[in-house]
Design a binder for these strands. Structure first.
Length: 430
DNA sequence: TCTGGGGTCCTAGGACCC
DNA sequence: TCTGGGGTCCTAGGACCC
């Protein structure tokens, strides 16, 4: 294809990927400046696995997704600070970071809780590196969160740039890959599965065929790639060549599915605690459904035993909801009905899940000739949302869910920090 | 003893229709 | 004996992401 040794295709457009470093750890450190330079981890729900690591913990060889119980001795040996996850805090910090980023660009896509793609403004084109460094400095100063920034013509290249910037920890955390630059050395230093869009499976398959580095993937033949990896693989390859195939999507679209699931703190055998849990999942999903002004036409319920124990049992029930609904009462009734269809006695269930599908707009939806219109229970659900939001906690909820529940996930090391609570602020001197 | 929780998109194959 | 050729819609499963 003649790409070997070639630079990037000329383009006048550049974009930046901004990635918050060790984001959840950085959030916890905002309120614990004493933990700067010390090993810190943040755990998933139920304190099950490690989902964020400070650089010190990465240096110990602890992997993302590692079960906590397995690395606990090592972490304790190094006096690691351990936090249960506090997503309320992370979401709030995230929106502040995004607000600062928004001041630097005419167009941006919030890609995840800790990442955003920004279109470079004309003012940044003369000296992209300088623009990136200023952006990074402002975010750090105003929010306390350190970023890595990659600047390139395409998203896929910008991702690689940010990754390099993060690992090298040089040059102000900014790495540019500009049109005309020869990237052969840069790309050959990355294993192929470091590329955004290449996961474990495809990574292994590519390596087996001798495509071990990103450089080799960039120079692979189009028809070969498309045959094995489909159009998504082909897009990735073109993006590595500097051709933009994945645009910045500024408008935030409503989600197409909403899922609420948890691993239980203890295995559940009986029907009634499972029904409680499923009720809670339906309620959580319903709240998020109404928050994005949607209705759902289909609901699925899933329960399962541990994947790490034999024999495994898991089933999913599907309940059509008829007319699109946003009523908690209907969601809960359907979820429990589904649970009854799949529940079997004699198993230790460790996980449950409720998913809402076929979402449509709450404002305009298809009425049904046969199903009753549920505007009264919809109104009730909306009132509950408002009361609970204003109270800042679950003021109004089904009696079934009152009191302590054995299945509620553990979070033994929760910092309890809330941004609205001034008493959480660290004291500078006393 | 102890192993997360959320999403998206693409593709292949079957059902169905003309 | 010889058994069309498309098109569309739907779904399950696979792959990926953070």
């Amino acid at each position: 294809m003649g790409h070997s040794g070639s630079g990037l295709r000329k383009t006048r457009e550049l974009l930046a990927l901004c990635d918050c470093n060790n984001f959840f750890v950085s959030c916890e450190r905002l309120f614990r400046p004493d933990l700067e330079g010390r090993p810190v981890v943040v755990l998933s729900s139920n304190d099950g696995i490690v989902i964020a690591r400070s650089n010190e913990v990465k240096a110990l060889g602890v992997k993302m997704g590692e079960p906590f119980f397995r690395v606990r001795p090592l972490l304790e040996q190094h006096c690691t600070a351990v936090f249960s996850s506090n997503f309320q805090l992370y979401e709030e910090v995230s929106s502040r970071v995004m607000a600062v980023l928004g001041r630097f660009t005419p167009s941006m896509e919030v890609y995840s809780i800790d990442e955003a793609f920004l279109e470079l403004p004309p003012s940044g084109m003369d000296d992209p590196f300088c623009w990136g460094a200023a952006l990074r400095g402002t975010v750090l100063r105003e929010t306390g969160i350190p970023l890595s920034v990659g600047i390139a013509p395409t998203k896929t290249l910008a991702k690689l740039g940010a990754e390099r910037a993060k690992k090298d920890r040089v040059k102000e955390g900014v790495r540019t890959l500009l049109p005309g630059e020869n990237l052969d050395d840069f790309l050959s230093a990355f294993p192929v599965d470091d590329v955004w869009g290449i996961g474990r499976r495809w990574g292994d398959a590519l390596k087996k065929r001798g495509i071990t580095t990103v450089l080799r993937l960039r120079d692979a033949k189009d028809d070969w790639v498309e045959k094995r990896m489909g159009v998504r693989g082909l897009r990735t390859v073109w993006e590595l060549r500097g051709i933009r195939c994945i645009p910045i999507e500024e408008a935030e679209k409503p989600q197409k599915s909403i899922q609420s699931s948890r691993t239980f703190a203890v295995p559940l055998r009986e029907f009634s605690p499972l029904a409680e849990a499923v009720t809670e999942f339906a309620l959580t999903a319903g709240r998020r459904l109404r928050a994005q002004k949607s209705r759902a036409s289909r609901l699925t319920v899933h329960i399962g035993t541990s994947r790490f124990r034999d024999p495994w049992y898991g089933r999913t029930a599907e309940i059509p909801l008829g007319m699109p609904t946003e009523s908690d009462i209907r969601l809960i009734r359907s979820a429990v009905e589904g649970l009854a269809m799949i529940y079997r006695e004699g198993y230790d269930y460790v996980r449950g899940e409720v998913t809402l599908l076929e979402l449509s707009s709450a404002e305009t939806f298809q009425l049904s000739l046969f199903d009753p219109f549920d505007d009264r229970s919809t109104a009730l659900s909306r009132v509950a949302d408002r009361l609970n939001r204003e109270a800042g906690r679950q003021l109004l909820r089904p009696a079934l869910l009152l009191g302590e529940k054995e299945w509620r996930p553990r979070r033994d090391s929760h910092s309890g920090v809330r941004l609205e609570d001034l008493s959480n602020l660290p004291v500078l001197s006393s």
